[in-house]
């Protein structure tokens, strides 16, 4: 499968990485064993604009799937992010403190938010969207929200 699925609407192109899973809000989860790295999708970052601040809960904090685990503030909006996985925050991307724009620059790579030590990744994964399903979901969202892009 290609590395990304791409959707062009008007003058925007949105990429969906095909090696991870997504929740409806555009938070992705990529597992290596029970260590699940989480971040936001390309569509999320383009829709919400340049990130001024990104705050993730402290390492060691227990989180449940769909609980808020991070907040992103752009000049446009403040967004609370629901965690795609249950577990304990094992690491937070230190770059976010001074260079939160890395989320815009590389949402699927250097712009990751946190690593969660998953309590039951298999169960959480079953509740997340595959890249293909998220891609379709995102297209609908993009069309609905085109006015704000």
């Amino acid at each position: 499968m290609a590395e990304f699925l791409e959707y062009t609407l008007d003058k925007f192109t949105f990429k969906v990485a095909t090696d991870r899973f997504y929740n409806p809000e555009g938070v992705w989860a990529k597992a290596e064993g029970n260590q699940v790295t989480v971040g936001v999708s390309d569509f999320f970052q383009q829709r919400n604009g340049d990130v001024a601040f990104a705050e993730v809960k402290d390492v060691g904090t227990a989180v449940a799937a769909n609980d808020e685990f991070a907040t992103i503030e752009t000049i446009k909006v403040d967004v609370e992010l629901p965690c795609p996985v249950s577990g304990t925050i094992a690491a937070v991307n230190e770059k976010l403190e001074l260079e939160a724009e890395v989320i815009n620059q590389d949402p699927y790579g250097e712009g990751w938010l946190a690593v969660i030590a998953a309590a039951n990744w298999a169960a959480d994964q079953a509740n997340l969207m595959t890249p293909e399903v998220y891609f379709e979901h995102m297209k609908v969202q993009a069309q609905e929200e085109a006015e704000n892009l």
Binding site: D50, A52, F53, E73, I75, E101
Partner: peptide
């Protein structure tokens, strides 16, 4: 401008 906003977080344009 984004950096200036970071230094003046309450001033959301």
């Amino acid at each position: 401008v984004l950096d200036v906003f970071r230094r003046n977080r309450k001033l959301k344009p």
